[in-house]
Each structure stands twice: as C-alpha cells, then as structure tokens.
Amino acid sequence: MSLKEQLKKDFSTFTLALIAVAIVLNIVIGQIVSLLKLPIFLDSIGTVLVALVAGPWAGGLTGLLTNLIWGLITDPVAAAFAPVAMIIGIAAGLCAKYGLFKKWWGVIISGVIITVALSIIAIPIRVYMFGGITGSGADFITAYLLATGKDLFSAVIITVITDNLLDKIVTAFLAWFIVKGLPKRFISRTPRANAVLE
C-alpha cells in the first residue's frame, strides 16, 4: 500500500470523529486528574488510544492538536509543548505497529519507549524556552539536581524522565484496556486495531 493510500485509510471520517473525541478526552481527563491531585497526568490517554487503533500519524495529529487547542482556549504555554504531545502519539503508534501492544510486558516497554521519545523533544523545549522550569512540582527535582552540581541539561533529562515514566506506562495500560474493551463493531471501523488485539 502506498503512503497516500495508507493515509487515506488512516484518516477516514470515522478516524477524524475519533480524533476529535480523543482530543476532548485528553483535555477533560487531564483536568480531572489534576483536580484530584494525582501524581500522574493522563492527558495523553486519548492520543495513545488513537495511536493504537488508527496508527502513528493519527496519534501524532491527536497530540499536536490537543496542545494547540489547549493553547487557544486556556493556556498558550501548552501550545509550546505541542511537538512533545505529537511525538507521544507517533511513538505509541509505532510501538503498536511493531506488535508491542499485544502482551502486558510489551505495554510496559512501550511506556518506556514513549517516555524516551518524548524526552528527546521535550528537553530542548524545556531548556531553551523555559530555562528548565515549567512551574510544576517537577521543578523541585530540577532544583535539587542543579544544587547537587548537575548541569541544566542533565538535570532536565532526569526530571522529564522521572516525571513522565509512571504516567506514560499507566497511560499505555489504560489505553490498551480501553481498546480491548471496545465493542467489535467499533474495532472493525478502525484501520489498525488488529495490531493491538490478538
């Protein structure tokens, strides 16, 4: 299948309607979780979900647009991290494509891969645009590491990874469970869910 055909298949009207819902789920769940003051974000659960059933491009687009819309309506700072959100979707989609979302241990590995992938994009943005600070609790880790004599870059690397690892593994698991729990009829409309279901 050519790339054009694959993209056409990946971006059916059904997928588009799904992406729209996933964007809303990202934002809404992200807000509920922060309201409940949990140590995770879950604001990319929709992104990973789309990545699992509709592939890396659709997943990436979901992440990108989530942050752009977030920036448009509540906090323009979120828009700066749109590329990070995009990488989460792309990485999750690729993990699914290569069969990592078939077994529980694969899901954990995927969570790790997603974290590493997003760090590569997040670190330069955090360091260059924000001086390594984001105004969240994770800044304490950065401050501590700087105080112990680490340079800014290494401090931010460690902060981003510790801050995200648990969240991305939990997110990957939740998205996986949701896909497994979806009705057959729904699954059959999505282009790539077979890569996840055995």
């Binding site: 059916s12 009207t13 059904f14 588009l16 309607a17 799904l18 819902v21 809303v24 789920l25 809404v28 769940i29 949701i178 729990g181 979806l182 009705p183 009829r185 729904f186 409309r189």
Partner: peptide
C-alpha cells in the same frame, strides 16, 4: 464518559 464518547463516534461520523 470515555466509553459513551467513543461509542458515539460512529453515529457522528
């Protein structure tokens, strides 16, 4: 919330 929103996707599309 998640499941009802996902189930609605088909009709909406």
């Amino acid at each position: 919330l998640v499941f009802s929103a996902l189930v609605d996707v088909e009709e909406r599309s």
